[in-house]
């Protein structure tokens, strides 16, 4: 470990977290750190609490016990919008009433960008994704892969410190999934974000991540 790594706190630190949803506790004492530009894949069968882990980090699911630190700051009780944690779901969930560019610009606008600046940045991100000229498209016209790319751009646009990916490829066919996994992995590293990717597919996990961890090994079962 270099001195620099010892002095800078990890982008994301999960400390002694309990994973619980609607009265069911899956694991306690979950601890994990993720560095900038690092991609960690968490493996586990369905129903093991993977999505709950991401939900608690993003602030979407109430935290029964434990702490979440982003860049060394405790965000455990911060509201969702002030955490600096992005979340990508299994489905792209693009806002159906906005076009592609407005979807990508949405987070920028919430972070104080002007309309023009946000639109410009959205255009750059689309080019980066290989979707030039898609600004005015309706989101319903996108293919599954395109929609998931746009969702990724939308999540990365406001430069979150941490990005949680909840099986974002599970709704896509195998061929498309393989291509997207490579692309997304490169994009995440380039964005410098600390990424947590949960999946039940071990091949996918190895293809995308620097580290692959079994969820059950992170804490104590309950």
């Amino acid at each position: 470990m270099t001195t620099r790594e010892l002095l800078t706190p990890p982008r994301l630190a999960v400390e002694d977290l309990a994973l619980g949803y609607e009265g069911v506790t899956f694991l306690t004492g979950v601890s994990l750190t993720v560095a900038a530009s690092e991609i960690v894949a968490i493996l586990g069968p369905s129903g093991s609490g993977k999505s709950t882990l991401l939900g608690e980090i993003a602030g979407v699911v109430p935290i029964p016990a434990g702490r979440i630190l982003v860049d060394g700051t405790d965000v455990t009780t911060e509201p969702i919008h002030a955490r600096g944690v992005g979340l990508i779901f299994q489905e792209p969930l693009l806002f159906p009433h906005l076009d592609v560019a407005a979807n990508i610009a949405y987070g920028l606008r919430r972070h104080g960008w002007s309309k023009a600046a946000a639109a410009g940045r959205a255009g750059e991100l689309l080019a980066w994704l290989g979707l030039e000229g898609y600004q005015r498209r309706r989101v319903g016209e996108l293919s599954g892969g395109q929609a998931q790319r746009v969702a990724l751009a939308r999540a990365l646009a406001p430069k979150p410190a941490v990005l949680c990916l909840d099986e974002p490829f599970s709704a896509l066919d195998a061929d498309l999934r393989r291509r997207l996994v490579t692309d997304v992995s490169a994009m995440l590293r380039e964005a410098g974000v600390a990424a947590i990717h949960v999946t039940h597919d071990e091949d996918e996990a190895r293809a995308i991540a620097d580290r692959v961890i079994e969820l059950s090994s992170l804490g104590r079962p309950r």
Partner: peptide, 21 residues
């Protein structure tokens, strides 16, 4: 409620997410 959650993770307050989404 997923769309609202997405908006929230992108920096929208609860009210803002209600109005926008």
């Amino acid at each position: 409620g997923d769309y609202e959650l997405v908006a929230r993770t992108l920096g929208a307050t609860r009210t803002r997410a209600f109005i926008d989404v």
